[in-house]
């Protein structure tokens, strides 16, 4: 007889809480990310002791706003990493979208919706281009998007002549996106929450999400199960393009003008670090939005704390690079693979 008892199937998987509410929360966070929560608590406590204003509501809002753009990119980076790919051109895509949104806004007589729509449209095109290069050019995703990192940055600089473009804070929509609050929480944070929840549902509740995990987990098996891998990869990179465009629009709204590079350079490192810290296996197939968001929060709190304490921003770069390596080393140790050959 089968040893799967009916009771066992009704129960949640081991490691999840027994109480309904906290179980849902835990399943969103992911049980193995408790260590991230611990690290976050340590960071908050440490800087809270060092500086009494650190834990204030206004500083928390500053942290949240500063982390929003990184957060958006980390969420989609999580999707592409789960799918077995990587996108290091996200920062440059943000720059393109920022410039396009501001310039279209200005040149159409302050039509904010058109600026937003064209920026998103360009985002889709850029994402699809990334996907096509990878799928049909058979270019390794890291290399393809490394090329994109340079090319899209150049594109943003060409469009903007290398300068900040336009002024958007005379428009209610941009002001709301950059400065507005709903229920005491900044509008841009709401956007991050909306995107994160949507992507989380996509990953965990739909067949699309299952297939994304399948492709990253074992592409041969996914192919033999009839999943059209090419289609999925192009779609995932297009999704990145859309979300990077939203991030670019928010950057414009926050700074008041289109920024080709300022504010978007280095975002790819932050996004990838957050995804890796959040538990995404860089070889694909594993990870989740909950862990990534926690890691975004951790990185945001750390960065703010170091700034508040007046630590040189050069050191913050060192810290960020170190964190990425540490996150991956921990992952590799946990996976328990034989330490031979080239690491994958």
């Amino acid at each position: 007889m089968t040893t799967i008892t009916p009771q066992a199937t009704k129960d949640a998987p081991p490691g999840q809480g027994a109480v309904g509410g906290s179980r849902t929360l835990l399943s969103f966070v992911g049980g193995q990310n408790l260590s991230l929560i611990g690290a976050l608590a340590v960071v908050l406590a440490l800087f809270g002791i060092l500086n009494e204003n650190y834990l204030s509501v206004s500083n928390m809002q500053v942290i949240a706003e500063a982390a929003t753009i990184t957060g958006l990119l980390a969420v989609v980076q999580t999707v592409v990493i789960i799918c077995g790919g990587l996108d290091i051109s996200v920062g440059s895509q943000v720059g393109v979208a920022s410039v396009v949104s501001a310039m279209v806004f200005t040149s159409t007589g302050d039509n904010a919706l058109l600026g937003v729509a064209v920026a998103v449209g360009v985002g889709v095109l850029v994402g699809v281009l990334n996907g096509l290069v990878i799928v049909y050019g058979r270019v390794n995703p890291t290399i393809a998007t490394l090329a994109g990192l340079a090319a899209y940055k150049g594109l943003a600089q060409l469009l903007s002549d290398g300068r900040a473009q336009g002024y958007v804070l005379n428009d209610d929509i941009f002001v709301f996106l950059g400065r507005g609050k709903v229920a005491g929480i900044p509008a841009m944070v709401w956007i991050l929450i909306a995107v994160a929840v949507a992507v989380h549902l996509l990953l965990t509740r739909t067949d699309i999400g299952r297939n994304i995990y399948a492709i990253g987990g074992n592409d041969t098996a996914a192919r033999l199960a009839g999943i059209n891998i090419n289609k999925y990869l192009v779609a995932v990179y297009a999704l990145i393009g859309v979300v990077a465009a939203i991030a670019g629009i928010l950057l414009t709204a926050r700074t008041g003008s289109g920024q080709p590079t300022s504010g978007s350079e280095g975002l790819e490192l932050k996004a990838i670090t957050a995804a890796a810290l959040g538990g995404c296996a860089l070889r694909g197939g594993k990870g989740g939005i909950g862990g990534t968001l926690l890691a975004v929060a951790l990185l945001g709190c750390l960065e703010n704390g170091l700034t508040v304490e007046g630590i040189n921003s050069f050191w913050q770069n060192v810290a960020q690079g170190a964190l990425l390596v540490i996150a991956v080393v921990i992952q590799q140790r946990r996976s328990g693979e034989r330490a031979v050959g080239l690491p994958t």
């Binding site: 299952r210 995990y213 987990g217 074992n218 033999l224």
Partner: peptide, 24 residues
């Protein structure tokens, strides 16, 4: 292992992969 299974996923995920379109 190499051609059919997703080793880090559950029995449920592995078993339902080709019938998801009938369950959605």
């Amino acid at each position: 292992k190499a051609q059919a299974l997703f080793l880090h996923r559950s029995i449920r995920d592995n078993s339902s992969l080709v019938v998801l379109e009938r369950l959605r």
